[in-house]
Simulated scan of single mutants.
Amino acid sequence: MSESYLEIQLDQQPIELCKLLKIADLVTGGGEAKIVISEGYVLLNGEVEYQKKKSIS
C-alpha cells in the first residue's frame, strides 16, 4: 500500500484545519472537510486529527 503526503506552507497563520483542506483543494466544500476529518482520514504531523476547527500555524 502506497501512502502519499502533501506538505503545505502557510503565508498567513493560523488557519482552521477544515478551511485548509478547502484551500488546498483536497475537498469540495466545508461539509466534506468536516466528514473526512471526523472519520479519521486526515493526518496532521503524522497523527490522525479529529478536531475540525484545529488551529494550524
Rank of each mutant, 00 (worst) to 15 (best):
L43Q: 11
L6Y: 04
E7A: 13
E47C: 09
V48L: 13
E39D: 15
I15V: 14
E32H: 10
I23E: 11
K22R: 15
K19I: 09
I23L: 13
K52M: 10
C18W: 13
Q13F: 00
L44R: 03
E47I: 11
K34H: 03
D11R: 11
A24N: 00
K53T: 11
G40D: 08
T28M: 13
L20N: 01
G29R: 03
G30K: 00
A33H: 05
S4V: 13
Q13D: 09
S2E: 15
D11Y: 10
L20H: 04
G31M: 02
N45G: 08
A33W: 01
E49Y: 01
G40R: 04
T28Q: 14
G29Y: 05
Q51C: 02
G31Q: 09
D25K: 14
D25P: 00
E7C: 09
I37A: 02
G46M: 07
Q12W: 06
E47T: 07
C18N: 09
Y41C: 12
I37V: 05
S4E: 15
Q13V: 12
G40P: 02
G29Q: 08
D11P: 07
I37P: 01
S55V: 02
D25T: 00
V48F: 06
Q51I: 11
Y50I: 02
Y41W: 12
V48N: 03
L17V: 06
E32F: 05
Q12P: 00
T28Y: 09
Q9L: 13
E39W: 07
L20E: 00
Q51H: 00
I8H: 05
I8R: 05
G31S: 09
I37T: 01
V27D: 00
C18T: 08
D25W: 09
C18K: 15
L26C: 09
Y50K: 06
A33N: 04
V42H: 07
Y50G: 01
Y5C: 13
G46S: 03
L21R: 01
L10E: 04
L6E: 14
Q12M: 10
G40Q: 06
S2Q: 11
D25N: 15
I35L: 00
G30E: 00
Q9S: 15
A33S: 10
Y5Q: 15
V48K: 15
E16L: 07
K19L: 10
G30C: 03
L6W: 05
E49K: 06
A33M: 06
L43C: 09
L10D: 02
I56T: 08
E47L: 11
E39P: 00
L17K: 02
K22I: 11
S55R: 14
Y41R: 15
G29P: 04
V42F: 00
I56P: 01
E7S: 10
V48E: 12
S57M: 03
E3A: 14
L21K: 05
K34N: 10
S57H: 11
Y50F: 14
Q12H: 10
G40H: 04
K53E: 13
L26Q: 11
K54S: 01
G31C: 04
L10F: 08
E3W: 12
E49R: 05
Q51E: 15
I37C: 01
Q13P: 03
N45H: 13
K22Q: 13
K54G: 00
V27G: 01
S55E: 13
G46W: 08
T28P: 03
Q51Y: 04
L10S: 10
N45D: 14
A33T: 04
C18R: 08
E47F: 10
G29D: 15
V27Y: 02
S38K: 12
L17I: 06
L26T: 03
K19G: 06
I15W: 00
